[in-house]
Simulated assay, not measured.
Amino acid sequence: MRKVGLLGGTFDPPHLGHLFIAQEVQHRLGLDEVWFIPAHEAPHKVKSHTDADLRLEMVQAAIADNPIFRMNPIEVDRLGKSFTFDTIKLLQEMHPNTAFHFIIGADLVESLHTWHRIDDLVEMLTFVGVGRPGYELVTTYPVTYVDIPELEISSSMIRARVEQGAPVHYLITEAVFDIIKEQKLYAER
């Protein structure tokens, strides 16, 4: 049975923290691949700043040089708010010989009790929790913890830096930076 990690998010924009988390979890758990799953609309966040097609393009650019990383547009293709339960159910139907490991930050570990159909989800996949500054990895639900060095990088920080004209090199890949420049994303509003 293949072991695949899933890393969901708005990826607005994708940054080196996302890539580092995916790499570390893949290595530590011996996963065959890690799939990045950009949300069309995440149920726990306000609307994205950037169109879904551009976020897909940025994710593809960010992961292009890693043969173990893939992008899966399943949630963008479905449109609307995406609940993890619906995504996992569909992925399991499409990939019956795959064990999924859903990678989440400590902020989401703490809020698992609020997730749609969480009791079903814990039976369907393995949750993998990674540390995030300012959060504890505390929940009553089963979570496999992967201790990795914490990087204080967030998409909101990158958007703010771009808006202020501050450098973002070494926070995102050059390919993502090129798309941000070309499309004039996150510029002063």
Rank of each mutant, 00 (worst) to 15 (best):
E24S: 15
S154V: 07
D147V: 09
H27F: 14
V4K: 02
L54I: 15
R132M: 07
F177P: 00
V138S: 13
V59A: 01
F83M: 04
E110C: 09
F102N: 00
L29P: 09
D119L: 06
H44K: 10
D86E: 14
V122K: 14
L16G: 06
E182P: 06
K47H: 11
R28F: 06
M1T: 08
V176A: 13
Y186W: 10
R132W: 06
I118P: 13
A22F: 00
V146N: 10
G8I: 01
G134H: 09
T139E: 12
E174R: 14
Q183G: 01
W115N: 07
F20T: 13
D178I: 00
G8A: 07
D107W: 11
A42H: 06
I158H: 09
L90F: 01
G30W: 08
G105R: 03
L171N: 07
E174I: 12
K3A: 14
A42F: 02
V34L: 01
A175N: 07
E24C: 11
H27E: 15
K181L: 15
Y135L: 09
Q164W: 10
T84P: 04
D119T: 13
L56P: 02
R2V: 01
Y170D: 11
F100S: 06
I103A: 11
V4W: 03
H101E: 08
I21H: 01
S154N: 02
E33R: 06
L125P: 02
M124N: 03
V34C: 00
R189K: 11
P133E: 12
